[in-house]
Amino acid sequence: MNETTIDFRLNGTPTEVTVPTNRLLADLLREDLRCHGVRSSCERGVCGACTVLVDDLPVASCSTFAFDVDGASVETVEGLAAADGSLSPQQQAFAECGGFQCGFCTSGMLMLTTGLLRQNPCPKRADIRSWISSNTCRCTGYEMILESVERAAELGDGGAR
């Protein structure tokens, strides 16, 4: 049987799916679970457009097999806003500080930010720079992303949700 059944939490919701063994987490999220906010770009783990959190840690979902999240908690950009649609502090900050342009890296950058703030609610500039250096943004020149992360921390609550 080249299929496997996995049980995990997707943005807090218990989810069980049976997928081919080579199903990638990115494709599972995008194609089977309608999380189109997960973007696929380089698909070899470098650019980070597909970054999601797995048990609070940022991972490239293009380079993670779905079977590897069995039992884990997976979070995507779709889980950031509150149920009533109000934006999370990270989302507000990226909007307010212009931390996005074409938007293709933005979901990944937001998840990196979420992971960072969860570990370190008051990161220093050097920590932010180091974390954001995990992913590629070709549009902004990064400074406005770094400021967005600082602003997200300031807006409170950050990744604590």
Binding site: N2, T4, T21, N22, R23, C62, S63, F67
Partner: peptide, 13 residues
């Protein structure tokens, strides 16, 4: 070729 365009494999854990 991409990782999603290969056939499923036998998974051992």
């Amino acid at each position: 070729q991409t990782q999603s365009s290969i056939p499923p494999f036998e998974l051992h854990r």
